[in-house]
Design a protein around this nucleic acid. Structure first.
Length: 198
DNA sequence: CGTAAGATGAAG
DNA sequence: TTCATCTTACGG
């Protein structure tokens, strides 16, 4: 266990999705695979809920989105545009369709592996954007339905919480509905966050 | 069934 | 701005 980080307290992932999306900023995402370790600090997230139309959960549970409806802390990974994976963390209690999309990480460990997976892109781009981060971290649909508290993917929270004043909110990126909601959160001033689209 | 659109990324 | 690439979800 890395100094400065600890296992999340009980109930951490059962919080409502907006609370969790904020609480994940500054947390550490770790992937252990085949004796290798990759990790990074979460610097950008987005909340998605069954209550708004931009969410996969808006029209109820399906074969794809079912992890969103499971207990908080379950991994939801899906493929977008037939090319890129997106990594989400289920929030809230079982039966409620909510998840946090992780959009960017500050790379911490396993930079060599990440760089290899990302074809030698600059460090600043390794984990910038949801698809890029999955590629760098080696996250695929194989991880769909995994438990973040017991599997090869883990989340650790900082011992000293990120001050609320360091977390900024904005509109979500790349969606066509519910544009007005400011459900994207990022570490203020971080150079690792993804760029906005039009 | 057929098909349109998608929580993106990279190149031109 | 365009295109790669393919699954999902929805309509017929």
């Amino acid at each position: 266990m890395t100094p400065g980080f600890r296992r999340p307290p009980a109930g951490f992932f059962e919080a409502d999705v907006l609370t969790l999306a904020r609480a994940l900023i500054g947390a550490k995402l770790v992937h252990d695979a085949a004796g290798t370790v990759r990790s990074g600090i979460v610097v950008e997230t987005e909340a998605y809920s069954e209550t708004e139309p931009a969410s996969h959960a808006y029209r109820g549970r399906t074969d794809r989105n079912w992890p969103m409806f499971e207990d908080g802390g379950m991994v939801y990974v899906y493929l977008v545009y037939g090319l890129h994976h997106c990594f989400n963390i289920s929030a809230g209690p079982r039966g409620r369709g909510e998840a946090v999309l992780v959009r960017a990480l500050q790379p911490l460990e396993g930079l060599d592996l990440m760089s290899q997976a990302r074809k030698g892109r600059p460090v600043g781009d390794l984990c910038r954007g949801p698809g890029n981060l999955c590629r760098a971290m080696g996250i695929t649909t194989d991880h769909n339905g995994a438990d973040l508290r017991s599997g090869p993917l883990r989340v650790l929270v900082p011992e000293h919480p990120v001050p609320a004043s360091m977390i900024a909110a904005s509109r979500r990126i790349g969606i066509t509905s519910a544009r007005e909601l400011e459900w994207r959160f990022y570490l203020r001033g971080s150079p690792w966050v993804s760029a906005s689209r039009s």
